[in-house]
Design a protein around this nucleic acid. Structure first.
Length: 574
RNA sequence: CGGGGCGUAGCGUAGUGGCUAGCGCGCCUGCUUUGGGAGCAGGAGACCGGGAGUUCGAAUCUCCCCGCCCCGACCA
């Protein structure tokens, strides 16, 4: 039983000034968490109970799936991370420290190295595989910008699993087992989620999916087809285009276009000059990028922006990608800012990549690579060619689903889980091999699977809260019932105390508001803020032998007679 | 790291050069009240983020530093 008269809890009437998103605001107001530093939070009793419920559900489902729990240190030596090159690759996001002798240590941002070395130290035969092990651990990342309270911290708790298999088929099976365990876990947590195909990016793997919990304050944008259920990270969205079937354009021509450095001004000028009604979609935008120190041009239709994330995710092997800056133009005097066109790319020494919408045979209005001049009828395949097609343009709502060609919607979400097939990168780097049937050493293939445990608290809060406070699903709430003694009479407190004990005896956890000094109104407001799903009120109707039972999520109120109160409550809850 | 904003009591805030830094919530004492964040009276609680400067005088002006929030970049 949690007695509010003695609980370490102070609810706040005002929103904290530094909290923007609902989960942060309400978790602070309801006394679940307190901020210690940017992206670093303490859990108070109520918050920690909810946190632990989530952790335990995750643990149960991992154990049920046959994965084995281990626990590694957070404070780690430099060497293993040196071997996988992450000591330097991880960059400034890694919390680093030195011991008294000056040796380098780090606070683990993720634990691939430890898991891999653990298996290497213990196992050496294909007969030991497959193996899946996991831990629930505090992770440290010195985020450039922690934000949204609990959602993105510098210290956070993650459940991370790793699978070890002798071959690709084994990895695929381990991956599927995790996928299924994740679906069960998130369903139990009461989270709405979409599974979205994702790029594995820098981690060096292949197949990868994210579990995204839709909510307006989420920081991930993804594409969803409401018809066929296709869902993808914007980076992984594939553009559906039909081959060009229009007429062959006339020979391209250059025309004067003074003071026309933008798409809008170009559209206006062309329509005035040639009397047409072209739009930005008829123009070709040439965006210059620096890719690992080399200039490249990206072609997209004039009505779309270049999405750098998409380009980076789809241009293999490029490490550093950024927009051209004025200094870069200074280094390439032949590139005329505002008047770029792909026609002279070879001569200018610039590799050109085109968004798939720039189909072969299509023609465009674009820059003439001379100040104050543009060209029209510039035709792909005739007047210019490209190094490759690359997904480059921003994804917009209404773009066609690559599976069923229905217009897609764009939604926001919190990433609550990520599963991916790591492959042999870490096993290779750290020398994890096992002997196969023939006694020959084989490099093990790995999968890596994460769930944001502390983040899940915030994600559930985000998906369930309402105007008056938190509103937990029963499995997650810090208590099963919130019992309010509303009144001053000893009779009310005596009965409420008795009822609280009976409910506890029946197996429920009771958050008992036994504060003598607080008014009924205060207690009701606090109960609503705290968000326990069932509220029992012992108050004025006790004189007639009745108590009140409310369901937080729907706001319903019914009365039960005290002689059957416990069984009625149990009934209503189950 | 770029852009914007903010730092005054546990929380929310007022105070743009002048007396003892004001108010609300919360906290303590007493009385009253008692089913929707109660009333009255009395109280405790602030190195005004830090440092340097300008000035007879600085929460207030200047410079530097630190911290925090938001947008972007980046990221599980």
């Amino acid at each position: 039983m949690l007695r509010m008269s003695t609980l370490l809890l102070r609810t706040l009437r005002d929103d904290p000034a530094d909290a923007e998103v609902a989960s942060h605001r309400l978790l602070v107001r309801a006394g679940y968490v307190r901020r210690v530093a940017a992206g670093i939070y303490s859990w108070l009793p109520l918050g920690y109970r909810t946190y632990r419920k989530i952790e335990n559900i995750i643990r149960e489902e991992m154990d049920y799936a046959g994965f084995q729990e281990v626990h590694f240190p957070s404070l780690l030596p430099r060497e293993p991370y040196e071997e996988t090159n992450r000591w330097s690759e991880y960059g400034p996001d890694l919390f680093r420290l030195k011991d008294r002798r000056g040796s380098d240590y780090l606070l683990g941002p993720t634990h691939e190295e430890m898991f891999t070395l653990m298996v290497k130290g213990e196992f050496s035969s294909y007969k030991d595989l497959p193996l899946s092990i996991y831990q629930i651990q505090t992770k440290f990342r010195d985020e450039p910008r922690p934000r949204s309270g609990i959602i993105r911290g510098r210290e956070f708790v993650m459940k991370d699993s790793y699978s070890f298999d002798i071959d690709d088929a084994g990895l695929e099976a381990s991956y599927q087992r995790h996928r299924e365990a994740y679906i069960k876990t998130f369903n139990r947590l009461g989270l709405k989620f979409n599974i979205v195909s994702a790029m594995s990016g820098a981690m060096g793997g292949s197949k990868s999916e994210e579990f995204l919990a839709p909510c307006p304050t989420g920081e991930d944008t993804y594409v969803l087809c409401e018809k066929c259920g296709f869902a993808a990270n914007v980076e992984a969205m594939v553009t559906k285009v039909a081959p060009y079937v229009g007429e062959v354009a006339p020979t391209f021509e250059v025309f004067d276009s003074p003071n026309t450095p933008t798409i809008d001004s170009l559209v206006e000028l062309v329509n005035a000059k040639f009397g047409g009604s072209i739009t930005a979609a008829d123009t070709l935008k040439n965006v210059l990028l620096m890719a690992d120190g080399a200039a490249i041009a990206i072609l997209v239709p004039g009505d779309r922006e270049v999405d750098l994330k998409r380009v980076a995710a789809n241009l293999p092997g490029v490490q550093d990608l950024r927009l051209f800056e004025d200094e870069d133009f200074a280094k390439y005097p032949a590139l005329v800012k505002g008047y770029m066109g792909p026609q002279d790319a070879q001569a200018l020494g610039v590799k050109v990549y085109a968004d798939p919408r720039i189909t072969l045979g299509s023609h465009w209005i674009t820059g003439a690579n001379q100040k104050d001049k543009h060209s029209r009828f510039v035709t792909h395949g005739r007047d210019f060619s490209v190094t490759a097609f690359v997904e480059a343009a921003e994804v917009k709502a209404g773009d066609l689903c690559p599976q069923c060609e229905t217009p897609v919607v764009i939604d926001r979400a919190i990433e609550i889980g990520h599963i991916f097939q790591l492959g042999r990168k870490y096993a290779q780097a750290l020398g994890l091999t096992v002997l196969d049937h023939n006694g020959k050493a084989q490099v093990v293939t790995m999968g890596s699977y994460g769930i944001g445990v502390s983040r899940a608290v915030a994600a559930i809060a985000e998906q369930t809260y309402d105007e008056i406070g938190l509103n937990w699903p029963p499995e997650i709430a810090p208590a099963d019932v919130h019992l309010v003694a509303a009144g001053k009479d000893d009779a009310i407190f005596d009965y409420a105390t008795k009822l609280a004990l009976e409910l506890e005896t029946a197996g429920l956890t009771v958050l008992f508001d036994d504060r003598r000094e607080a008014s009924a109104g205060v207690k009701f407001k606090d109960a609503e803020l705290i968000g326990v799903p069932y509220i029992v009120i012992v108050g004025k109707s006790l004189a007639e032998g009745r108590i009140e039972f409310r369901v937080r999520s729907v706001g319903s109120k019914v009365e039960f007679g005290i002689e059957s109160a416990v069984s009625e409550i149990l009934n209503a809850i189950r």
